[in-house]
Simulated scan of single mutants.
Amino acid sequence: MRFTCNGQWLDLELSHLVVAGWTGRDQAAIQHHIDELAAIGVTPPSTTPLFYRAASALLTQSPRIEVVGTGSSGEVEPLVVQAGGRQWLGLGSDHTDRTLEAHSVALSKQICAKPCAAQLWDWDSVADRLDQIVLESWIDEDGSWVPYQQGSLSAIRPLGDLITAAGLDSLARDGAVAMMCGTFGAKGGVRPASRFRMAMSDPTTGRSISHEYATVTLAEVA
């Protein structure tokens, strides 16, 4: 994949993609969400946080993805990229099939493409203020952009802890590795949309990264 960082091209051969789940710092809120999902048939996680594996080819910078049926939706997440002893912070959407999620969370993570922005920030440039970084998303509803998610990384477990727990150093021996690191609750509830817009901003410097993609629905043939 080709990214940009500090105005320069960064070409990476991605070998592993990890999707971290249940990464909130508020354990009571996590348990509440687990109970809510269990009520609709979603199996509780074996531990929290949990690190799902997905095919590296699912990570895409395309402005369009294709999904089967109408039961999928996006969610904005910080994206950690590591290769050659270096780390970067980026922006991605853990687009997930919610219908399949009730059967298997792991399979629901694998079935959809994971859109990401083409721009990365050098890790050292934000490492001292990661908790201040803000992520937001919007969905297209009836032709208007509606706020969907908003939060800072202070609501997510420290990214350094997730990097260690996921074993990224070991995985990076095979090549570049990327990890999505969790998200925030959706305003008005989780729901699908034909277009999804997301942004990550650094209040200290005023710089930001954004990405937008459309979801094309394929017929669900039985």
Rank of each mutant, 00 (worst) to 15 (best):
D26W: 03
D97T: 10
S93T: 05
S104F: 08
D35C: 07
E101N: 04
Q61C: 15
A117C: 14
I34E: 04
A29Q: 15
R98C: 09
E13N: 06
A102V: 04
C116E: 03
A57P: 01
L17K: 12
H16G: 09
C112P: 01
L91C: 10
D124P: 03
S46G: 05
R25S: 12
D94S: 11
G21I: 08
H16I: 12
L59K: 14
R86C: 06
A102N: 15
V19W: 01
T60A: 05
P44C: 01
V81L: 07
N6L: 06
L89S: 02
S46F: 11
D94L: 11
T48C: 08
I34F: 11
R64T: 13
H103F: 12
D35G: 06
A83D: 14
Q8S: 14
H16M: 04
A57C: 09
L107N: 15
T47S: 07
C5M: 06
C116Q: 09
D124I: 05
S125I: 01
W22D: 01
P115Q: 14
A118I: 13
Q82K: 10
K114H: 11
S104Y: 06
R86A: 09
E13M: 12
I65Q: 07
S125H: 03
A118F: 00
D94H: 11
V42C: 15
G69D: 12
K114F: 01
I34A: 02
D35N: 15
H95F: 06
